[in-house]
């Protein structure tokens, strides 16, 4: 499996789009850090961009890479390796290379700026969340692409999932909170947050930064329910589930699919 991971990783790392993605984060975090004297403000702006952009890029890359490598997968399937190794290997290759673009793109400016000025952990949490979102959305996109032979359909559904999680979910969530405000909503909103990795990541970062003003309703519930550190651990655990479950589905689909 390592061989497949490295092969896909090097293929993607050399692609033009990886450089574009890397330079985008590099420029963005340079600008935000050096034009802004408050690190935690910069972290919040970065958070807002990362929680929307990494899922989108993960989705697009995941779907495109799978469809582009259809024929290559056939070649690999005729080699003496396990099916699951091919697919999990390709998935990890894509997810790792995207995460690396993110980590380097954000990391270099932060290192130059001097993270050691006290906000190291804030910065680390940003990287962790970004990598988690990449792994989650690449896995979701891979699942969708494996299920749909038709590229246009697969692409459409994948983008729809992103749109749902990044934009629509929040809206529906807010409207339902307003509509059912007479009822106790604490538990319901906690559960609802767990079903959206983007919301979850946002809360995770805000809990870490300890900015209650920005926490919003679910964040506040989260904090009062779990306390800061337990809240952090719980949300991290749910994010891990968000990675593991889609990977399990990739594994299962790969075993049963005809090529």
């Amino acid at each position: 499996m390592i061989k497949i991971i490295t092969y896909c990783f090097f293929d993607l790392v050399r692609s033009r789009w990886s450089y574009v993605y890397f330079s985008f984060y590099l420029l963005l975090s340079f600008a935000l850090l050096f034009l802004n004297n408050d690190t935690s403000k910069a972290v919040i702006s970065l958070m807002n961009i990362i929680t929307v952009l990494t899922p989108l890029i993960g989705t697009i890359f995941g779907v495109m890479y799978y469809y582009n490598s259809r024929e290559f997968i056939e070649l690999l399937l005729s080699q003496p390796i396990k099916r699951s190794h091919i697919f999990i290997g390709q998935y990890l290759g894509v997810a790792i290379s995207l995460s690396l673009s993110l980590i380097l793109g954000l990391g270099i400016p932060f290192l130059l700026y001097g993270v050691l000025q006290g906000s190291t952990s804030n910065f680390l949490i940003l990287l962790t969340v970004g990598s988690f979102l990449t792994f989650i959305f690449v896995a979701l996109a891979y699942n969708i692409a494996l299920t749909h032979e038709n590229k246009i359909k697969g692409f459409g559904y994948a983008i729809l999932v992103w749109l749902l999680m990044a934009v629509i979910y929040d809206g529906v969530f807010l409207i339902s909170l307003v509509m059912f405000q007479e009822y106790p909503l604490d538990n319901a909103s906690l559960i609802a947050t767990a079903f959206n990795p983007i919301d979850l990541s946002r809360i995770l970062i805000l809990l870490k930064l300890d900015i209650s003003a920005l926490l919003g309703y679910t964040g506040a519930v989260f904090k009062s329910f779990f306390g800061t550190s337990l809240g952090l651990i719980t949300s991290l655990f749910v994010l891990v589930l968000w990675v593991v479950i889609p990977i399990f589905f990739i594994y299962r689909k790969a075993q049963r699919k005809d090529f």
């Binding site: 896909c8 293929d11 050399r14 490598s69 259809r70 024929e71 290559f72 056939e74």
Partner: peptide
């Protein structure tokens, strides 16, 4: 020998 020869582009 697969029918269609198409490989990852950047390697």
């Amino acid at each position: 020998l697969p029918q269609i020869a198409n490989f990852p582009n950047n390697n």
